[in-house]
Amino acid sequence: MLTLEGIRLTRGDFTLSADFQLAAGSRTAVIGPSGAGKSTLFDIIAGFAAPDTGRVLWQGRDLTRTAPAGRPMSLLFQDNNLFPHLSLYQNVALGISPALKLSDADKARVQQAITRAGLSGLEARKPGALSGGQQGRAALARALLSARPLVMLDEPFSALGPALKSDMLRLLEEVLEETGAAMLMITHSPEDALAIAPQTIVVTDGRVCPPAETRALLADPPPDLKAYLG
């Protein structure tokens, strides 16, 4: 269970406050206008920004001062999820060993994850020679491999077309089912939220609302969200 306890972070005249819990294995969308604080919220959970006050807890363990790599999550960014100078195989294998020191058993697992993501045969290619969809799959293969209990995604599919996007959502769902991981996904699209996240967190003006049921929320949005959705 992820707990944000009395979090406050002030940067200039912007203040983010958050106080909520996510159950293990839950799937949550984060939605809200640009500049409302979605990315700052992610930075605090992932360990890229330290809150002024409050604590981030995982299963009761205080993570507030833990470096990003020591936290129980894998992250998918909007882009730059792969190192351009490493092969697809190496990029995926980083999910097991950040120094790429792999045992034979590790190598078999890397290969398995690549196959699972439908990327067999492309192991030696560098990201520049992969399509956008294949790059996304490689990042998901790495998340599958590292099997952390929370997968966080920051608008991961915003650059993909509709068909590719639903393809990726399906693979994401498979990864989550196999690892039993919880998911937290920033998105601009209510359809994505409906498709994969039973609950949604609305962020407006630095205020982070506790998770609410996605379907009900979108059917009858509060004024702030209504203004954003148009």
Binding site: F48, P68, L75, F77
Partner: peptide, 12 residues
């Protein structure tokens, strides 16, 4: 950030 999340520090 990608390197941070993956725990790539030091010589690696």
């Amino acid at each position: 950030r990608l390197a941070d999340v993956l725990g790539m520090t030091g010589w690696a």
